[in-house]
Write a protein that binds this DNA or RNA. Structure first.
Length: 574
RNA sequence: GGGAUCGUAGCUCAACUGGACAGAGCGACGGUUUCCUAAACCGUAGGUUCCGGGUUCGAUUCCCGGCGGUCCCA
């Protein structure tokens, strides 16, 4: 039985007729206090008109006196401070729980999302532009959230909402025709598209306006479905997606759909019609707006005075489309925090339109470089492929000393880049820094990968040393036979920590913070390293050895599963 | 002007949503390899959690008022 349930039952026994659904048992904040603690007796003191410690004492008595229900879980039950209930579990209980965890698939991650669908919208770069370091966050955080929800059993539709429509395409088409050589046009790359865009945009600015008008004309032709321009546009998009996918492959990112803004073009007039019919959109100075002043969200323009639409409308069309096609339980958007107002506006309008799907914005702090926003104009734009190449190069330097190859350098280098981002709360802004992004020591991706490689090496050696072992292959920790087997503090702490893995995954997903999981994994690896350092494993006496090996095996499984949820690879050997 | 968001060790960040003496990494200083991978481990130093009130048995966390940074809207 779950520890929280056991304690809840004790509360009910001590105070019949009350609802104790809120009672929770948490890992102790300090090992001096025991293994677990429950702080909820304090909250009830006022309600019962009792001293907090007396409430705790009554619960403790109920726990202590009912060994059938507790199943011998506790070695010690104490009341401390103002009324904390401190619990020390028995080695037998801990061993049994670890064996249970080891026997479960997916390291015990609960399948809470079975039968539910979620759409997650992330990365979303602009077509015809190269990806740069500013794109890492949405891509990596979004992908981790994607993986977390899949692990919880949800059916996830990962969609890349590309910036694939707008005035830039007039400039691009004109630039493509006039600013590129024939060879460049034939072997078209995103770099060339970027180049002709810059040239064309510059000409549109400086000349008498003829170039600008020509660009506009190309745009209008495109919007009206001109076959040549449409074919060119399609080609630009295909080339862009091809290049993005090369980046995504390196980062272990995969999308189910690539539906850019253009996908929703045809749906926008209908959305506006419905908004007007519902009395939500009204005319103002030639434009159609939805007034959200009552919610202090200002006004949202859904059709401009020139008849054009903007993001609010296209995002509403997108919600309509997704709800109609997938009927998801939730739609998650991972974008930088500058867009918060926009999301609040269109979420509010969607609710007024009658959409009940949960819409969630996961805002992250914008990445800057040397204190400035990343932009071509600032001249501080570092391309994503440059970053990844440098990450690989730095990893290779060290990996070579140990005889590692390029593949290993990629796993480590890219792992470092991803972890550097994922280990921070998404809300915090990051100022890009080469050394931090590519850290290989301390709280870093490679630290975790190294811990994994070491445990793999250990398991290999264990196999070699005892090939025809009589031990069952399944890693179980039979604390019931030898309670002393999990008796060292380092061992106990690691065991207790491993039990928290499913909870860490759930919390990370619910809060949309991969950092919660990253933090958990780092702490776990620290506990393992500490245990590994202080306790002989292969050289200890057979029973202890077997028990410790099972603990190590479970650690390896948890670490591997956890790192994969962050999209970080786990080489067996470093 | 209105609104969002952040402010924690020298630096970069945590703190399981209100719990016990606020923890890690980097950097600094000192220690640990005839021993399972030293990308590791152990120890020392480092704090008025921006300031001032309030709620509470208890506040880094919640509320109010300042100050400062970043961003959005007009």
């Amino acid at each position: 039985m779950e520890l929280s349930e056991i304690v809840r039952a004790a509360f009910e026994k001590a105070f019949p007729g009350e609802d104790f659904g809120f009672v929770r048992v948490l890992p102790a904040t300090d090992s001096r206090f025991g293994d677990y603690q429950c702080n909820d007796a304090l909250k009830l003191a006022k309600r019962f008109g009792m001293k907090p410690r007396d409430v705790a004492a009554k619960v403790a008595a109920a726990l202590d006196g009912d060994s059938d229900a507790t199943g011998g879980a506790f070695d010690k039950i104490e009341i401390a401070g103002p009324g904390f209930l401190n619990l020390t579990v028995s080695s037998a209980w801990l061993g049994a729980r670890l064996a249970e965890l080891a026997a479960q698939p997916n390291c015990g991650i609960p399948q809470k999302g079975a039968g539910k669908r979620i759409v997650i919208d992330y990365s979303s770069p602009n077509a015809a532009k190269q990806m740069h370091i500013g794109h890492i966050r949405s891509t990596v955080i979004g992908n981790a959230i994607d993986r977390l929800y899949r692990a919880l059993g949800y059916t996830v539709i990962a969609d890349n909402h590309l910036g694939d429509w707008g005035t830039q395409f007039g400039i691009l088409i004109k630039g493509y025709r006039e600013c590129l050589t024939e060879e460049e046009r034939e072997n078209l790359t995103v770099a060339n598209l970027e180049k002709c865009y810059v040239l064309s945009a510059a000409k549109a600015k400086e000349s008498d306006g003829a170039w600008k008008d020509a660009c506009r004309a190309e745009l209008v032709k495109l919007q009206q479905g001109d076959a040549d321009n449409l074919a060119l546009w399609k080609r630009f998009i295909d080339i862009s997606i091809g290049e993005f996918e090369r980046m995504y492959a390196k980062l272990g990112v995969r999308f189910d759909t690539y539906r850019g803004e253009s996908y929703y073009n045809a749906m926008m007039p209908g959305v506006v019609e419905r908004l007007v019919a519902a009395g939500l959109a009204v005319e103002s100075e030639g434009a159609l707006i939805v007034n959200l002043e009552a919610e202090k969200l200002g006004v949202a323009i859904v059709r401009k005075s020139d008849g054009g639409y903007n993001y609010t409308t296209s995002d509403l069309a997108c919600v309509e489309s997704r709800v109609g096609e997938y009927d998801p339980e939730r739609i998650i958007y991972v974008t930088d925090d500058r867009q918060q107002l926009h999301f609040r506006q269109f979420f509010s309008i969607a609710a007024k339109m009658g959409f009940t799907t949960r819409l969630v914005h996961v805002p992250f702090g914008l990445m800057s470089y040397q204190g400035k926003a990343i932009s071509t104009r600032e001249g501080n734009l570092i391309r994503l492929d440059e970053l990844l190449a440098e990450a690989k190069r730095r990893a290779l330097e060290i990996v070579r000393e140990r005889g590692g190859d390029e593949t290993l350098a990629e796993q480590i280098g890219y792992g470092a880049v991803k972890y550097a981002d994922l280990s921070h709360d998404p809300a915090t802004a990051i100022d890009f820094n080469w050394d931090k992004a590519l850290a290989l020591e301390g709280n870093s991706g490679p630290y975790l990968q190294y811990a994994y490689a070491r445990v793999c090496s250990l398991m290999e050696k264990a196999k070699d040393a005892a090939p025809e072992s009589t031990e069952p292959p399944q890693p179980t920790i039979d604390g019931d036979q030898q309670p002393s087997q999990l008796s060292t503090p380092a061992e106990r702490r690691l065991g207790l920590q491993l039990l928290e893995f499913p909870g860490a995954v759930e919390r990370a997903a619910e809060a949309y913070k991969p950092s919660v999981l990253a933090d958990y994994l780092f702490q776990t690896a620290q506990l393992y390293s500490s245990f590994y350092q202080s306790s002989p494993i292969l050289k200890s006496e057979p029973k202890v050895r077997a028990s410790r090996l099972r603990l190590c095996a479970l650690f390896g499984e948890v670490l591997k599963a956890g790192l994969h949820l962050l999209g970080i690879e786990t080489p067996n050997h470093i």
